[in-house]
């Protein structure tokens, strides 16, 4: 059975890139158009990188690849992220 975590598992990795925890931020899925908190995504950790998918439609929202001295971050499945001031 594939391990599934919730999107809050992205908090540590994203804290490298964003100043604040963005798992509470809402994002729009390019697959279904749904808007929901990043923390609500489904995360597959047993892969060559973290893969976050939309909880509604399974669209890949984000990938985070740990390359040691580099991190590859893709947010290509989120058309927009809402960040509160």
């Amino acid at each position: 059975m594939a391990t599934r975590l919730d999107g809050n598992a992205l908090a540590g990795a994203l804290s490298e890139v964003f100043r604040e925890d963005v798992t509470a931020a809402r994002a729009r899925c390019i697959g279904c158009g749904g808007v929901s908190p990043i923390g609500g995504a489904v995360v597959y950790p047993d892969a060559p990188g973290l893969v976050a998918r939309c909880a509604s439609c399974d669209q890949v929202l984000a990938t985070i690849v740990d390359a040691g001295d580099r991190v590859f971050l893709s947010l290509s499945g989120m058309s927009t992220i809402e960040l509160r001031r």
């Binding site: 598992a9 990795a13 490298e16 950790p45 985070i64 740990d66 001295d69 991190v71």
Partner: peptide
């Protein structure tokens, strides 16, 4: 919002690195 230097916290990422 994007930090320009993330090298210092790579270790924290590695803790959840697959």
């Amino acid at each position: 919002l994007l930090q320009s230097n993330t090298a210092g916290s790579v270790g924290s990422f590695a803790q959840i690195g697959v």
